[in-house]
């Protein structure tokens, strides 16, 4: 006996949206952060599943490794060990290659990019180096304003941005001043 053909009826709606946590986890862990964020926006029960599974758990530390030989920005990679058994390597994505990795938080790496026009603009990226689902998320982009103080020209990136992402939020504050190439940025990232 064949089962009755199932259509797009009410029953189907609830069946997919009521997928138990374990089965949801099996699906969600195969998706990228961006896809998971979209899944969370589908309905409340899926939102709950995503927020539950993306809840903070201490991720293994990532190490920056060079395969040896001549220094080559493209060949640097990230490496981590799971359960002490095997290591997983991950190439640094092109978008954040050559950028300044200025911190990490809950498994995310924070990259700061300054454009060629010295400190005219800084862009901050967050990168989740997950071997199955890695994602790069632009957090903030800052453009500075030029100021003159006495005879010294300086660029001051004084906007404070709050850019919310699914993974958390970041405040970026950048300053340029003092000496010619003196620059610093304060970047704070936290998870909601």
């Amino acid at each position: 006996m064949a089962p009755p053909p199932t259509g797009e009826g009410e029953e189907e709606e609830s069946r997919w949206s009521q997928l138990p946590m374990h089965e949801m986890e099996m699906i969600l862990k195969r998706l990228t952060v961006v896809d998971r964020t979209r899944v969370a926006a589908v309905c409340k029960s899926w939102q709950e599943a995503v927020s539950f599974l993306d809840a903070p758990s201490p991720p293994p530390p990532w190490m920056l490794v060079s395969p040896g030989g001549l220094p080559d920005g493209r060949r640097w990679g990230l490496c981590t060990a799971f359960a002490g058994r095997r290591s997983l390597g991950l190439e640094i994505p092109e978008k954040v290659q050559g950028q300044w990795c200025c911190g990490s938080y809950k498994g995310w790496l924070l990259f700061l990019h300054t454009s060629a026009e010295i400190f005219l603009e800084i862009v901050v990226y967050m990168f989740e180096p997950h071997p199955v689902a890695s994602a790069i998320i632009p957090i903030a982009s800052l453009v500075g304003e030029e100021e003159r103080h006495g005879g010294v020209k300086r660029r001051r990136l004084h906007r404070v941005l709050h850019c919310q992402a699914a993974v958390g939020a970041a405040t970026v504050e950048g300053f340029q001043g003092g000496g010619r190439d003196f620059f610093y940025a304060i970047v704070t990232v936290w998870r909601r």
Partner: peptide, 27 residues
């Protein structure tokens, strides 16, 4: 089966996912 569902969801918009699975938004 989880991989098959994940493959179906990948790169779909929220509306496409809802339509595909017949899930109605309760937001």
């Amino acid at each position: 089966t989880s991989q098959a569902v994940a493959d179906a969801i990948k790169n779909m918009s929220v509306e496409e996912v809802r339509h595909y699975f017949g899930v109605v938004s309760d937001f």
